[in-house]
Design a protein around this nucleic acid. Structure first.
Length: 262
DNA sequence: CGTTATGTTTCACT
DNA sequence: CAGTGAAACATAAC
């Protein structure tokens, strides 16, 4: 379930398990997960080691002892899995790196929307993909600058990876619930106070989610993740949560708490 | 069987 | 160029 906090956890996991071990082989069951030919990955990764990781939004960059940087995106259903016994290869571990210590790193991807790529530099990749700074690091000034003049729904704005890298669908709903802002509120109709409230809520949701290892049931009780579903009721108002579409994505909000105004 | 799902990219229109 | 809505990608789970 990878949005920023989940990928943060994956980074910690990979740092603790998979660095500084010589890569002996790559097993790819489905090359659709690779943005470049398998041969390229083998050329650049075999006999090398993973040396460090950097996360920007939902993207994880893994530097290697070779020339290239490995880029991972987990899609909607990806996660890493480090294991020893080959029989423990996860069902959806379509892509596996094996290390000289006998352990394996599986890139699990049930729905195959995740992928691997190779890049020369993180900065280059970031520019090519118009990726903003990570939402956790982003300054209010940069945030305000990048949304200036935009005319669309606030939810679409905060989910735009060129505005704040890392905010996905559940986080956007949570952020707007915490900020008491209707997801369809047009940016051009918002006051700077409201926009700042959204920014602060974004920062808070990220920190709370990371503190709790993205484990939703451990979130504070006033967090929407506990009632982000049809038929559930809002913690603050007791009113029923509504489900709508915003920017093509399913959106949950509390109509009495997040009032659209006129 | 039909619907839905945490994401990104592309494309045809306004 | 900015924004919109839909489609495409692929597949499990309800």
């Amino acid at each position: 379930m990878p949005e920023l906090p989940e990928v943060h956890g994956y980074k910690t996991y990979i740092d603790a398990t998979s660095l500084h071990k010589r890569i002996t082989s790559i097993d790819c069951r489905d090359t659709r997960l690779l943005k470049q030919p398998l041969k390229d990955f083998e050329t650049h990764l075999i006999d090398q080691t993973l040396t460090s990781t950097h996360r920007i939004g939902k993207y994880l960059f893994i530097e290697t002892s070779g020339e290239k940087v490995l880029v991972l995106h987990f899609g909607m259903t990806g996660r890493p899995n480090y294991y020893k016994d080959p029989n423990e290869r996860p069902k959806f571990g379509h892509l596996v790196l094996s290390f000289d210590n006998g352990f394996h790193f599986a890139f699990e991807n049930k729905r195959k929307f995740g992928w691997w790529n190779l890049t020369d530099s993180i900065e280059e990749f970031k520019a090519e993909h118009r990726l903003s700074d990570d939402a956790r690091e982003l300054s209010l000034e940069d945030f305000m600058r990048s949304i200036e003049g935009r005319k669309t729904d606030i939810k679409k704005i905060i989910m735009d990876q060129s505005v704040a890298a890392g905010v996905g669908n559940w986080m956007a709903d949570e952020i707007l619930y915490q900020a008491k802002i209707h997801p369809s509120k047009r940016l051009e109709q918002m006051t700077s106070i409201e926009i700042e409230a959204v920014f602060k809520a974004m920062k808070n949701v990220i920190e709370v989610a990371i503190e709790n290892d993205a484990h939703y049931s451990d979130f504070p009780e006033h967090f929407m993740m506990h009632f982000r579903k049809e038929g559930a009721t809002c913690f603050h108002t007791g009113a029923e949560i509504e489900k709508i579409k915003v920017g093509g994505r399913t959106t949950y909000f509390s109509p009495k708490w997040q009032v659209l105004g006129d």
